[in-house]
Amino acid sequence: MDEQIVAIYTLVNDLLLGLGHHENSQCRMNDSEVITTAIVAALFFSGNYELARAFLHQGGYIPTMLSKSRYSRRLHRVSHYIVTFIEMLGAHWKGVSSDSIYVIDTFPIVVCDNWRIRRCRLYREEKYRGKIASKRRYFYGLKLHLMVTSQGQPVEFFLTPGSESDVTHLRSFQFDLPTGSEIYADKIYNDYAMEDLINETRQVKLCPVRKKNSKRPYPPWRTYWIKLHRKIVETTGSSIARRMPRSIHAVTAAGFELKIALFVLAESVSHIFKVAT
């Protein structure tokens, strides 16, 4: 863990320097340490900032650790860098990918179960009530839309309310991929107009699993190939879910969404360690 924590700090510090980030030299705890603490929390402590703060302070990694409230304010002040880091690491994974194959899927992020909606303070609108079709149950929260490489590295993500359709937000993906890339997806993403638009404007081919009555069927080997690669994004989604606690503690909606972004970033960082070993 020691080497990983040092590597995380070095990576964060280099990325901030590359972005031209400047901060007040009088700050007891610099922004690199603030963000490193958050990533360590997501990577090793299920997103618990307090456990990460105590571990890094008592272990001598960050002797000038801020108090709980001051740390929270500082983290939210630099929270926009979390998404930027995910995008920068995503660009790196796209650059080192050899096969130009990507996979997309959505995953429910539960804020609370259906029967506790009236007591939920983070989200209160009906649009956050979604359904997990595979489990035949409703939930209240968000959907994580995720794109990964053929090796499972996250390259793009965004969040939507739980009730909104996956195919509707297919247009929300940037699809900033190398020319000739293929994107594999579940059958719910069948949208011929969108497939043609992406192919025409981005020179990228969207290949969802076809329905039985599809007007554009694939040969059997092609269907098998797409389904085989779809397991990659499911594995990555499961890995992100395992990092999350049973219930994500957050006081505000912004804090809740920040923690989800940190779990995605932690997953991307973990692939750096896998490559290094």
Rank of each mutant, 00 (worst) to 15 (best):
D2H: 15
Q4D: 04
D14Y: 11
H21S: 02
S25D: 07
M29V: 06
N30K: 10
S32F: 08
T36H: 03
I39E: 02
V40L: 03
A41P: 10
A41T: 12
N48S: 15
E50R: 12
L51T: 11
Q58V: 15
R70A: 11
S79L: 03
H80W: 06
E87H: 00
E87G: 00
M88I: 15
A91R: 05
W93K: 07
V96N: 03
V96E: 05
S97M: 04
W115D: 05
R118S: 13
R121L: 12
Y123L: 13
R124I: 14
E126V: 03
E126H: 10
K127P: 10
G130Q: 01
K131P: 05
K135L: 10
K135V: 07
Y138Q: 06
Y138G: 09
K143C: 15
H145P: 12
V148G: 08
S150T: 06
Q151G: 03
P154Y: 00
P154K: 03
L159T: 15
G162P: 06
G162S: 08
D166N: 13
R171I: 03
F173R: 08
Q174T: 12
Q174W: 00
F175L: 09
I183H: 08
I188A: 14
D191V: 04
E200S: 05
L206K: 07
S214R: 11
P220E: 08
V233E: 12
T235R: 10
G237T: 02
S239D: 03
M244C: 04
P245H: 05
P245Y: 08
A254D: 11
I260R: 01
A261F: 06
S268D: 01
V269A: 01
S270N: 01
S270L: 00
H271M: 01
